[in-house]
Amino acid sequence: MKNNKLLISLLSLPLLATPFVAIADDDNVPPIKSLIVLEECGACHLAFQPAFLPKKSWQKMMGELENHFGEDASLDADSIAKIENYLVANASRKKFRGDKAPQRITELRWFTHEHSEREAKNMMKKLKVKSLVDCAACHKGAEMGIYDDD
């Protein structure tokens, strides 16, 4: 069953022109190993793993933290530099079509595809999840970069 699913998703990947191929081998991403990133970027939500977005996304985001998705998430220049270095060094190396610096993981095509199925919708209702941004509500191993835990 798991194998079937894997086969299907592998087959459908090129059709979706997804940038996610690099990590789709086991649906997991490397966990964050920087304390300052875990602390500063994990204060309001899960610290999203840098491998979900390309370098340009992180550079843009780190340049406008005082207006971060409708909130002030500003930091001192020293912390910004350290965090940006880590995010850029561990960013996705895939080519992103269209927007070269997407800011939301939840708006990437592979993501909307994976999460538009009935399973995710039902889970959202059952667990009373506020927003798809709350990855750890459904993926218990999200902090470790494990997303194939269902």
Binding site: E71, V129, S131
Partner: peptide
């Protein structure tokens, strides 16, 4: 301020003794 957060209570809940929640659900 920003329309998403009109009050301290938007995130810290209406009583200081209760746990609050960020907009992303943490």
């Amino acid at each position: 301020g920003k329309p998403e957060t009109p009050s301290c209570t938007s995130c810290h809940s209406t009583s200081p003794k209760n746990a609050g929640e960020t907009r992303a659900g943490k």
